[in-house]
């Protein structure tokens, strides 16, 4: 465990930064900007993980998210309307309920965190923790590790099957039309 006043300062910087960036994700017009904010939020969390001594997990989180956010930004520009946010618009539904649910989730979880009694048994040094994770991955938890690998492989195969242009019934976009936003129009067709 790393300790000292610098760690506290760094933690609060990362924490406030990642929460604010996480909030900004849903408060910006541009989707690319939203992806960058989300990446900033993830980087902050990765930094906190490193401060907590889980060096490997933190750095891998940051490494993984860089690629994911780029894919996300590209998908947005490919498929979503108004991705650049040049015309400000609000694309939300059930805003009040959602905000309420978010606040309830926060209060409940934060309450658990504050009220709960957690035993004080700190983890070993980061270097030892990284080595431990490696031994665990290829030792006792090998089955879990392998299952994760097989899950990822089947995800890849499934993704290619679903997203491929040639669908089960011929070319996927054949005869596809944009659905109307009003349900009545759909019934009338």
């Amino acid at each position: 465990m790393i300790a000292g006043p610098i760690v506290d300062v760094a933690f609060w910087l990362f924490a406030i930064g990642s929460v604010v960036a996480g909030y900004r994700v849903f408060r910006t017009d541009s989707m690319v900007r939203a992806a960058f904010y989300l990446l900033a939020s993830f980087t902050g969390v990765g930094g906190i993980l490193v401060l907590l001594g889980a060096e490997f997990l933190g750095m891998v989180l940051i490494l993984m998210m860089a690629g994911e956010m780029l894919v996300m930004a590209i998908v947005m520009v490919m498929f979503m309307m108004n991705p650049a946010g040049l015309n400000p618009m609000v694309m939300v539904h059930q805003n009040r309920i959602a905000a309420g649910a978010g606040i309830v989730a926060f209060v409940a979880l934060a309450g658990v965190g504050l009220v709960g009694q957690f035993p004080d048994r700190p983890a070993p040094e980061p270097a030892a923790a990284t080595a431990q994770l490696g031994t665990e991955l290829l030792g006792d938890s090998m089955l879990v590790f392998q299952t994760a690998g097989v899950a990822l492989l089947s995800t890849m195969i499934g993704a290619i099957a679903i997203a491929g242009r040639r669908g089960r019934y011929g070319v996927a976009e054949d005869g596809s039309v944009e659905p109307p936003l009003q349900p009545d129009e759909e019934r009338a067709r």
Binding site: L63, A66, A73
Partner: peptide, 25 residues
């Protein structure tokens, strides 16, 4: 010399694409 120096270096390389994308966008 962090215990995960390799991952830190790889993360830096991965972030280059964010920098370049930001620069182009």
């Amino acid at each position: 010399d962090p215990a995960t120096g390799f991952v830190v270096f790889s993360a830096a390389i991965a972030f280059v694409m964010i920098a370049v994308f930001l620069h182009g966008w």
